[in-house]
Amino acid sequence: MQNKQAAPSAPPPVLETRDVRKTYETGGETIHALRGIDFRVHQADFVAIRGPSGSGKSTLLNVLSCIDQPTHGDVWIGGDKASTLNERTLAKLRLEKLGLVFQAFNLIPVLSAYENIEYPLLLQRITPKERQRRVGEWLELVGLSELAKRRPQQMSGGQQQRVALARALVTEAAIVLADEPTGNLDAETTDRVLRIIQELNTERRVSFLVVTHDPEVSAFATRVVDLRDGLLSEQVPS
C-alpha cells in the first residue's frame, strides 16, 4: 500500500529553500530554530518531516507556507522567491500555489463542509458553475458528499480533516503542506486520510510535505527527512 517509488523523472522543484535560518530572541537569549535549511520538493514528492518536539518542525513549516519570514535565506514556491513578495502577493501565492492542512483542521465554524471547501475558490473568483463542479468532485473524492451541508461541529475529527484536505486541494495547488494531519485522529481515520493523500499523490501527482510524529505517516512518504536542532538530514525510506 505504501508508495516507495521515487518519481520517474526529475521535474522542477515546486518548493525550494536555500540556507534558510530562523532565530528568535527570547529574554536576551538567541534561539536558532533553523540553522541553514537547503531543501527541495519536486512534483509528486511525498515528504515527511520528522523530529522531536522543539526541533523546529513547525517553524520550518511556517516558513515554507510563507506565513512566516526566515531570518536568513530564501524560499522559492514554483519559481517565485517569497522574500521578494509583498504581503498581498504572498497571500495570492498561498491561495494559488499552496494548500495548507492544520493539525486542528481549522475549518470556518459558521460554514458548512461544502462552503468551507468552496471558500478558497471564491477568493480566486472562480465561476459558480466551476465552483460547484470542483467542490462536488472533492467532496466525492474525500467521501463526504452526504455531509456537504454539515457544519464542522456536526462532524467527527476525521470528517473535518477530510474537509480540510479537500479545501487545501480544491484550488489545484502544486503542493500541500500539512502539520500533523493525523495528530487528532484515531487509527482507523488516520489510515483513511493517509490513503486519500496517497491516492492524490500517486494519481494526481500532487506534492505533499507533511510534518509528523507518526511513524505510520512516514511510512507512506516517498522521502523522509529528520529535523534535529534546526538541521535537516534526509533518510532513505525503508
Binding site: E87, A91, L95
Partner: peptide, 16 residues
C-alpha cells in the same frame, strides 16, 4: 483570531 489566522493563511487578503 485563530479563524482569521486560518483564512489569511489560506490566502484571504487582510483587507478582505
Amino acid at each position: 483570531t485563530r479563524e482569521f489566522g486560518t483564512t489569511r493563511a489560506i490566502g484571504t487578503q487582510r483587507g478582505q
